[in-house]
Design a protein around this nucleic acid. Structure first.
Ligand code: ZN
Ligand code: ZN
Ligand code: ZN
Ligand code: ZN
Lengths: 130, 130
DNA sequence: TGCTTGTTGCGACTAAGTCGCATCTAGAAG
DNA sequence: CTTCTAGATGCGACTTAGTCGCAACAAGCA
């Protein structure tokens, strides 16, 4: 456990939104100025392997970046509004049930999941009908 | 509808596996040799917008590529084995039910979904126990 | 307090994806 | 069938995301 890793994890935990690598780097540098881009990539890689962070695309609404969040106790769906860019989270027992079904029916041992949805949020649907 | 687009769509339809941009380009060039990388990107972009193809990460098992497939009638889950690299597909009424629940409870209008799972397939689980 | 192993920073690199522009073509209109 | 035009393509240069080898460094154990 190094200073850099601690800082990166804390930064992700305290962020209210999902961070891409460059935002994460920028935020982390406020605490630990010398920290390097390569370290961020390497750390994320490790954290993913250990199942401590999840990776997201958020439907690539802003270019090809990937986004990261510390893995929540309960997996949640990410709902990305393609119109306003807002990202909502939603969790449901149905999702847990679906995962159980997958394992039962296919014998596949699930280690990570990633459920992302793109569309229009209720706000955008109401503001401009159709 | 141009020749290039037709060729790209046909190539994706006939492919048995999920293709990344460079494999798609290579295959498409067997039919239409002059076809350009930029055209592939631009076409995929359009097809995604029209809801004709889905984009996948397949857990980034082989670098940062993205993979594409023509959108199936029924959405399916992609199960990517992190050990052998095999990709299984699985569809379930539970998934449809979950999507309905999302729309009902959040008012979010779903246009695309992407459910990917990483783990160990039954074959790998049986061959090397633990 | 020193030792060892794994981590970091750096810089150069590869690969993925984008863009402007001149040329070309699908397909509509005459 | 010919002409016209909007939109698509090819090209090449470019940007951005992610990787890697290596020397210097630090965590944490003896
Ligand atoms: Zn919205
Ligand atoms: Zn989230
Ligand atoms: Zn991705
Ligand atoms: Zn496997």
């Amino acid at each position: 456990m190094t200073t850099q890793r601690r800082v990166l994890i804390e930064t992700m935990q305290e962020a209210k939104e999902h961070l891409d690598v460059s935002s994460l780097l920028a935020l982390a540098r406020k605490r630990e100025p010398g920290i390097d881009r390569a370290t961020v990539y390497r750390t994320i890689e490790k954290l993913k392997k250990f199942g401590l962070v999840d990776e997201l695309d958020l439907m690539h609404m802003n270019g090809e970046k990937h986004y990261y969040e510390v893995k929540p106790k309960r997996d949640h769906v990410h709902l990305a509004c393609l119109q306003c860019g807002q990202v909502e989270e939603f969790s449901s027992p149905l999702f847990e049930q679906l995962k159980r079904e997958i394992t039962e029916q296919t014998g596949f041992e699930i280690l990570v999941t990633r459920l992302e949805v793109g569309g229009r949020c209720s706000v955008c649907r109401n503001s401009n009908k159709r």
